[in-house]
Design a protein around this nucleic acid. Structure first.
Lengths: 295, 295
DNA sequence: GAAATCCATAACTTTGTTTTATGGATCATA
DNA sequence: TATGATCCATAAAACAAAGTTATGGATTTC
């Protein structure tokens, strides 16, 4: 696909020149230039600049739709060529930290396997520290981790936004409270993952923003896994903080309910971590697959 | 569409690096490099180099098919953008010499009109000399002419191969002769277009190759139009030389039959002629339309 | 009203593409 | 079976396209 069209797609999907630039690892003026050139060569305005924001014009929307289709065909072509070439075989070893390996990746791997049935997959679940070690020692091809600490020997690519949410069992006394305040949050009995877990780290960050510490919380018990927490909640008059990804099923079954805490945001990103330098070809295929599917 | 892919398409369609280069107005090494780059980035061999020729490999064929589809989508996109933009309106004045304006263009114009109903079309039929004058004096936007003389003030693009064929009426005494020799060709009574016509010029060239002149032929009569010649043939024991494009209907109705002459090739090209410099936008649209439809 | 964020423009630099020049291989033809 | 023509490949130099840095005016946010 033409480079200029790729730039257009990024801008259209972000509705922002600067965000697109960031995503493409080029400067914002370069993006401006491409869009300008594109607009003049088709003699259509593709984006409406209104104050500080941009919107797709009618022409822009048409352009986007066609290019999306074209993009898909290019992806198929690449796949077909790969098949003829007998690429897309061999192994792919992925390491992932617990939340990711339990709740995010299984579905992705199932789809990936469907598309690339000749790549043998291995999924290693471990804590962030071990995952990084395995990556550096070449025991895995890529890792999926939370955005806590970064290592210079590794490079990172964001691939998913996660949010930690406050939940309670649907028959707890707090189940009816749709929203609570920060001081409620401090007082209500709470169950958490152990210190050092990714979840706990993000909570710590959010508390710091509000000038609070862990000691200010009414933590009753620390448990070693999210599954344990969820089971604990079924018989506990209190709250817990977990990844939104981990409670999809429970929300649907209504065994667990979300509670909003005013002025408390606990967001994090999941990232792909890679060794610096060349990326193994199956790892690259996996990365492309992830970004094409917008999980 | 990516430039590299366009190069690939040209090579695939010509099955020749050098022809593709010519078609794209770039040098042959540039083509070589693009193909090489393309092959390495997909890690597939797209063309099999066998001696002095090239063939599409399986991967090459797949690549071609997908890109063809993609090309089509790009064309549609461009058309849609043009429509939104209300481009593709106004007029387009075409000049064409006689064979072309009678037998080649009408069908093309019908299709063009279907696609671009808001462009008002004008077709001027005249001899090559007048057509060139009209083009230079800006009375027409583009011309369609045979590849006889070239003018420096004009630029030319090949768009169709034509062949002159020897024919006779289906109830003439020669109708059963599938093939004749050059000396038969000299002896059999013949009807031709007048001297100075494009047809006569090509015949002259072909005769020269065989060290012959017009005087060596047994020309009974010169007529002013191909239609006249075809009508003449219905009641004439002799042959004529006409463009293959002009006898499609008659061959189907079997009122005229072709006769092959050994060692005589009378080929010519039809070309688009344009003024040097910028091309009017509707003229460009027409050119793209022609090249997309492979008439 | 100050600071931050957004996109546009201009001058300069880097990277990628094309050309020119050349060579080896194959094919057609005498 | 030589000879000349035609084909594609490669390398160095010239040129064009895309990227960067620096900066500015406009708008939004707090």
């Amino acid at each position: 696909m033409d480079h200029r069209d790729k730039v257009f797609m990024a801008v259209a999907e972000n509705l922002s020149f600067s965000k697109a630039a960031e995503e493409l690892f080029i400067s914002q003026p370069a993006v401006s230039k491409h869009i300008k050139e594109l607009e003049s060569s088709s003699s259509s305005t593709l984006f409406e600049r209104k104050g500080n924001r941009i919107y797709l014009t009618q022409a822009g929307k048409v352009n986007y739709e066609y290019l999306k289709k074209i993009q898909l065909q290019y992806a198929e072509l690449e796949f077909e060529l790969g098949r003829l070439n007998n690429t897309y075989k061999g192994t792919l070893k992925i390491g992932a930290s617990s939340t990711i390996s339990q709740y995010v990746i299984p579905e992705v791997l199932a789809l990936f396997y469907k598309r690339y049935p000749n790549i043998d997959l291995y999924l290693y679940s471990a804590n962030s520290f071990d995952i990084k070690r395995m990556l550096l020692e070449d025991e895995i091809d890529l890792a999926l981790v939370e955005n806590t600490s970064s290592l210079a020997a590794l490079k990172y690519i964001d691939f998913l936004d996660d949010e930690l949410v406050v939940v309670t069992g649907s028959n707890s006394v707090y189940a009816k409270r749709k929203q609570i305040t920060l001081s409620d949050f401090q007082e209500i009995p709470m169950v958490l993952r152990e210190k050092g877990s990714g979840t706990a780290e993000v909570i710590g960050e959010a508390l710091k923003v509000n000038n609070l510490r862990f000691d200010d919380l009414n933590v009753i018990i620390h448990l070693g896994s999210t599954e344990a927490i969820k089971n604990f909640l079924s018989d506990f008059d209190g709250i817990a903080v977990v990844s939104e990804k981990s409670i999809v099923k429970e929300l649907r079954l209504k065994t667990i309910v979300k509670i909003k805490v005013r002025n408390l945001e606990m967001a994090r990103k999941f990232r792909i971590a890679l060794r610096q330098g060349n990326v193994a070809s199956n790892a690259q295929t996996f990365i492309n697959f992830l970004s094409a599917h917008n999980f």
